[in-house]
C-alpha cells in the first residue's frame, strides 16, 4: 500500500462522494466505519484495501487511489457486505460503480485485477459475437490475453473428456440484435471495449 497525502486528496476530489452516491445510488456518507462489511468479506484477505477502507476513501475523495486498486476488481460481488451493513450501504454496488468508473477513465487494472478485466472482456467478446458464452473460446482467449497460457490447462483435458467443453459455439439467430445492444450501449454510455 502506498502512503497517501489525505489533505491534498480531499481538496482535489471534494465532489467524488457525491458522484459515487448518485451513480451507485448508495448513501456512502452514512458509513460510520463499524467494519462489519470487512469482517464478513470472503475476499478481504486478498484485497489491497478492505471494503470499509474503500468506503472511507470514497468519503475522503480518494478517487485515483480507488480506481487503481485491485480490490474493486477482485470483489466477488457476493453482497455479504451489503446484506449486513447497519447503514444500508450496498457496498457491492459501490465496488461495481468504481469498477465501471475505472474502465471509463481508462485506468488500466494491475496485478490480480488485470486477470479479472481480461476475463470480462473475453466473456463479453464471445457474447457480442455469438450471443452466448462460448466456453472454449473463453478459456483460450482468456489465457492468451492474460499471458497465463496454461492456467487451467491441466483441467481443460478432463473437461473435454467429460464432454463438458463444446467444440463449436452455439450462435443465437438474433445475433444482430445482440450486436445492436452493444452498439447502443457504447453510444449512450461508453465503457464497453
Amino acid at each position: 500500500m502506498e502512503s497517501i497525502n489525505i489533505n491534498q486528496s480531499i481538496a482535489k476530489n471534494a465532489q467524488f462522494i457525491e458522484e459515487i452516491g448518485i451513480e451507485s445510488g448508495q448513501p456512502v456518507q452514512k458509513c460510520y466505519q463499524c467494519g462489519k462489511c470487512t469482517a464478513g468479506c470472503p475476499v478481504a484477505f486478498a484485497m489491497d484495501y478492505t471494503p470499509n477502507q474503500v468506503i472511507r476513501m470514497v468519503q475522503l475523495g480518494m478517487k485515483e487511489e480507488l480506481l487503481k486498486s485491485e480490490t474493486i476488481w477482485i470483489c466477488a460481488s457476493c453482497s455479504t457486505c451489503s446484506t449486513r451493513c447497519p447503514c444500508e450501504v450496498e457496498i457491492a454496488h459501490v465496488m461495481e460503480t468504481l469498477r465501471i468508473m475505472a474502465g471509463r477513465s481508462g485506468t488500466a487494472p494491475a496485478g490480480k485485477a488485470k486477470y479479472v478485466e481480461v476475463m470480462y472482456d473475453a466473456l463479453l467478446g464471445t457474447v457480442e459475437k455469438y450471443g452466448r458464452t462460448y466456453e472454449v473460446g473463453l478459456v483460450l482467449n482468456n489465457n492468451l490475453k492474460s499471458g497465463k497460457l496454461f492456467n487451467g490447462a491441466d483441467m481443460g483435458l478432463p473437461m473435454f473428456q467429460k464432454g463438458k467443453l463444446q467444440l463449436m459455439p452455439s450462435k443465437v439467430q438474433g445475433a444482430a440484435e445482440i450486436a445492436r445492444i452493444f452498439a447502443e450501449v457504447r453510444k449512450m454510455e461508453g465503457g464497453v471495449k
Binding site: 460481488s77 460503480t97 469498477r99 474502465g103 470480462y120 450501449v185 454510455e189 464497453v192 471495449k193
Partner: peptide, 11 residues
C-alpha cells in the same frame, strides 16, 4: 452474468 456488471450498468 459475471462480466457485464464490471463494464456497464446499462449493458
Amino acid at each position: 452474468a459475471t462480466a457485464a456488471h464490471g463494464k456497464s450498468h446499462l449493458l
